[in-house]
């Protein structure tokens, strides 16, 4: 099983996590810029964080044979803090980098006017830099937040296929499926989605335009939830080719729209029409 985790915050994870991910087939990942639990109070903290996302963290990942890319944005939570607003001015510098494959995470947290403005501004930056967009949906008032998110995306003039709307669940997936945007799901130990519920959604909506991520960060989370979802899919009767589509080819197709994805050195698909040609040679 080869895995591309399209959303994971490796800055918060240990080298043991990198080793375990590599051992379970994770060969590539995207680390979205988000908040760090502790609020930041100046633009300098963001600049250092962005520098780590395009410098130090890809180096750490490479030591475990994992390709690391990132997304860059001012996240919705900190968009509300006037001390962080200047971050918008440094974004163009980072959106020009090779390792940056999307604008994100943008979207809503508390659905304030400040969030409206910062979200819309960054959607225009995505157009300008010809990058896809990773949109976070709020944890509180999720369904209403998702509806509003889709309206803002539509208004921006961006093509739906260049946008993934993330952290979906049973109640929000249909609206996003109908919009033409990509559907993102975060698989968590306790909250958000779990592998078995994910399988049910895949049975209902199919395997296209769907991204499955661990969204592992500094909270209680698990970088191997992508692998667990692949196993749950196989147990439910999906083929290895279905799993490869969801856990590898879909994220490659979505982030590949940036024209900046560099996957040299990753191993090719070891399945052909659902049969493993390695016959269990790898975990």
């Amino acid at each position: 099983m080869r895995i591309f985790d399209p959303h994971i915050h490796m800055t918060s994870r240990t080298t043991d996590d990198y080793a375990a991910m590599a051992a379970h087939g994770v060969q590539a990942l995207v680390e979205p810029a988000f908040w760090l639990g502790q609020p930041r109070t100046s633009v300098g903290s963001f600049v250092d964080y962005f520098d780590a996302l395009i410098g130090w963290e890809p180096f750490r990942a490479s030591q475990y044979g994992i390709k690391h890319h990132c997304t860059i944005a001012l996240n919705p939570k900190e968009a509300n803090d006037p001390r962080c607003r200047e971050v918008l001015e440094v974004l163009p510098r980072y959106l020009a980098k090779d390792g940056v494959v999307a604008v994100g995470e943008v979207g809503y947290d508390s659905m304030t006017p400040e969030e409206d403005e910062v979200f819309a501004t960054q959607l225009q930056l995505a157009k300008q830099f010809e990058l896809p967009v990773l949109v976070h949906t709020p944890h509180r008032d999720k369904a209403a937040g998702t509806t509003r998110t889709l309206a803002v995306v539509k208004e921006s003039g961006l093509e739906p296929h260049s946008v993934v709307v993330d952290h979906l669940n049973e109640l929000t997936v249909k609206e996003v499926a109908d919009s033409g945007c990509w559907m993102g799901f975060s698989i968590y130990p306790d909250t958000k989605m779990d592998p078995d519920r994910m399988v049910v959604i895949l049975q209902q909506f199919g395997t296209e335009r769907i991204l499955v991520n661990s969204a592992a960060d500094w909270g209680k989370s698990d970088p191997l939830r992508t692998y667990a979802t692949g196993q749950a899919m196989l147990a439910a009767g999906f083929t290895e080719d279905d799993v490869d589509q969801v856990l590898w080819r879909n994220p490659v197709a979505f982030y590949g729209q940036s024209q900046r994805l560099d996957l040299t050195g990753t191993e090719p698909d070891d399945t052909y029409e659902g049969n493993s040609i390695l016959r269990g040679a790898r975990a």
């Binding site: 520098d51 395009i54 410098g55 890809p58 180096f59 510098r93 980098k97 090779d98 390792g99």
Partner: peptide, 8 residues
């Protein structure tokens, strides 16, 4: 100062 690893 603003470069990624390859630029540096």
């Amino acid at each position: 100062r603003y470069g990624d690893a390859a630029e540096k």
